[in-house]
Design a protein around this nucleic acid. Structure first.
Lengths: 203, 203
DNA sequence: CGTACTTTTGAATCGCATCAAATCTGGTGG
DNA sequence: CCACCAGATTTGATGCGATTCAAAAGTACG
């Protein structure tokens, strides 16, 4: 059932200082499992080793918005500062996660200057990514958003999609139908080239 | 011409440690003045004392997107980590700004633990704000975005707009026409109440 | 008092969401 | 190994809502 053996060979995150590694507990989640729910009090910081965790918020009408997708690394970084979670965390696939007690984490930030620097750098990177995403979502037109995504998330005019197109559509603030159609049109016009889950910008 | 006297009575930010206050230089900008441009190398961290600074990026078609609006406090926080600015900074009105050499700032973060904590807390808050904004922009429909804004940016179902409605429309990813129309409709339906630059959610 | 910008409203258009349905895919269990 | 199922992918038709273009009235500021 669980695809991850207890003693996993997965690379331990180099970012984590030794002190914290002692406190870190490895946990596995089946697809669909909930790590935490909106409103709960944060007790741990999580680090994805394998699989995929999604932060999502459910709207009035039942629609759910994906706030963050994590395939590797920390997620819900802001929960370090908050009294309550602002969203749910759900395993999109079977996943392996490090769980670090929040108290130990705070102490490590206080004591380990190098770790603290890396943490700030991580937060700053998150801010930049989110700003780029906001900029993209402010664009009207499916085409513009897709091209903006390739340019800002990809390297050298090429992105590797680590998700289904349906999920990508949600991230772009579009319906999946519109995404499919626009992709097809862009390819027909010779603006992009699609191979498996790589999309390349021509020119 | 310049509305701010050299020796301003503006409250010095309590957040800034004494060491940094020595390095901080007070500068004033006329409306429309540019603080920095996309691509330039960050040499200072800025702190708004008065006025309004906008971070904006210009798109291919000449349209500009407002990435951040700062009326008070730090802005372009992520520039601490980057080689180049990713956007322009422009004074929307005559503004008074503290300019802190980036090197001194980094040293203060390293040496002053309390300041470092507050800086991380500030970054985390920024992450949460930006996530909320992304969530909002993913909503289809002008009405939903407006209500989401009031609920998440306001307090007790009420927001005070510190900007023109036109600018607000841009922040919501809408045209100003749509914003005006939707506001009128919402008010007619008795869902919101508009007074000057306060908008209140009924019930 | 004039200029620039915001606010407001109108009409026409276009693009995206929506509903519907068929096909394809990967994973499950018999 | 195959049948089956849930979900992703793909395409079509339709309607609504946001954009767009246009223009007038209001407002702030020098």
């Amino acid at each position: 059932m669980n695809p991850f053996p207890k003693k996993s060979a997965t690379a331990w995150p180099t970012m984590l200082p030794p002190t914290l590694q002692q406190h870190a507990e490895q946990r596995s989640f089946d697809a669909g499992a909930t790590l935490f729910r909106q409103g709960e009090v944060p007790r741990s910081i999580f680090y994805v080793l394998a699989g995929e965790i999604r932060l999502l918020r459910r709207e009035r009408d039942g629609m759910e918005v994906i706030l963050q997708r994590s395939v590797s690394g920390f997620f819900a970084e802001a929960s370090l500062e908050t009294e309550h979670y602002h969203c749910d965390a759900v395993a999109a696939r079977a996943s392996l996660v490090l769980s670090i007690p929040i108290q130990a984490f705070r102490e490590a930030l206080d004591e380990d200057r190098s770790f603290c620097r890396r943490w700030m750098s991580l937060l700053a990177r998150e801010v930049r990514t989110l700003r780029a995403k906001c900029e993209r979502l402010c664009l009207h037109g499916a085409e513009e958003r897709i091209l903006h995504y390739i340019e800002s998330e990809g390297m050298a005019g090429m992105v590797r999609l680590g998700q289904t197109r349906k999920a990508w559509a949600t991230e772009l603030g579009l319906t999946h139908e519109t995404l499919y159609r626009t992709l097809r049109r862009l390819q027909q016009q010779g603006i992009i080239r699609i191979e498996a889950n790589c999309i390349r910008l021509i020119r």
